[in-house]
Simulated scan of single mutants.
Amino acid sequence: MIVASKERYLPVVVNTLVLSKDDWYFYLHRDVYDQAVILTDRYDRAVGDLMELIGNKQRNEEAVRWFYEQAPKPLHILAPYLQLIDGEIARDIELICGVLHVVTAMIQVRQFVLKPPEIRKSVSFSLTIKEEYEMAWERFFVSALPYEQRGLLLQAGPRPAAQPELAIPVSMTDTVPLFPVQSDRFDPLSGQAPVRTGSTDDERTATRNLLSR
């Protein structure tokens, strides 16, 4: 998940980190952030090498270099993945973050550069993915709280369903369900750890309380 906004929000999506630069706030899923940190450690001083690994170096080169300079670290290191887009991308923060939102949901960017060249060259995305990120962003903003209203979480406490003005939106699951939360409890029957597609009520309550302090 990658969401950009000039308005500051208090996200209630589990495992969401917030970065800021200039007049923008960037909301990243922890999985995307961790992958970007690893890529930054490896390629920040050799971003040209990362561009070569991804391929199609001439595609959207201007947008790549612009976003690399404009975005906060470590989000900036994802700029070369704009080369995977089959179509010209304007120098627009919201558009680029939306595109990267879909790209990072579909592929593991950290592992992508380790794939064989023939696989990397076969991957591309159409600009029609704009509809996908617009829907995902809408779900994020519906569940997030305006930052100036963060005190309501502490003041309201448990509220009956008849008072929706202070109620937290019902949908509290991850905006992008492609990042499941792994349970650390072992299932002896299947031999694998079960996968949860969302978080529990207690986890969400603890996260909201932590973020509002």
Rank of each mutant, 00 (worst) to 15 (best):
P72T: 11
S122V: 11
K115W: 12
D31F: 08
D34A: 15
P72V: 12
D201E: 13
E134K: 11
P116M: 09
L10E: 06
F141E: 04
R59W: 07
P158D: 12
P164M: 12
E7M: 07
E94D: 13
L178S: 11
L75P: 00
V12K: 07
K57V: 15
V181W: 03
N209E: 12
E69L: 06
R208L: 13
R45V: 01
D31N: 04
V47E: 02
A4D: 01
P80H: 03
T197C: 03
V3H: 06
M135K: 11
T205Y: 09
H101C: 13
D187N: 15
R185Q: 12
R139Y: 05
D49Q: 03
L82G: 09
S126C: 09
I89W: 05
Y43F: 15
Q111T: 08
N60E: 07
R120G: 02
Y43M: 03
D201H: 10
Y27F: 15
L154D: 10
A136I: 08
V64P: 01
L100V: 11
P158F: 13
A105V: 02
Q155I: 15
G191K: 07
V13M: 10
I93G: 03
I93P: 01
D201L: 15
F112A: 01
Q182P: 00
V109C: 14
L17H: 00
E61A: 11
A105I: 02
A105E: 13
Q108E: 07
P74Y: 08
D41S: 10
R208K: 07
R159S: 08
L152F: 12
R65P: 02
D31V: 14
H29V: 00
P164Q: 08
E62A: 14
V109L: 06
Y81G: 02
V37L: 14
W66V: 05
H76R: 14
E118F: 11
R185L: 14
D86V: 11
V170R: 13
M135I: 09
Q149E: 10
Q155H: 03
V18L: 05
T16N: 04
K73D: 08
W24Y: 11
D49T: 06
K73V: 14
P117A: 14
V14L: 14
D44R: 11
Y81N: 02
A162Q: 09
M172C: 06
Q58F: 06
R65C: 01
M1P: 02
E148Y: 06
Q70D: 00
E52P: 00
I93Y: 03
Q163V: 15
G48L: 01
I89L: 15
L154P: 01
V13L: 03
D34N: 14
A36R: 01
I85T: 11
D23Y: 09
A90H: 08
G55H: 02
G87R: 09
E138H: 08
I77K: 03
A162C: 09
Y27S: 06
A156E: 04
Y25F: 15
I89Y: 04
F141A: 05
P116T: 10
R120Y: 04
R59E: 10
Y68M: 05
E134L: 15
A136C: 02
N60H: 08
L75E: 05
R204H: 08
L210H: 11
V3K: 07
A71W: 09
Y33L: 14
Q70M: 10
P117V: 13
I129S: 00
R196Q: 04
Y147L: 05
V12H: 05
R8Y: 02
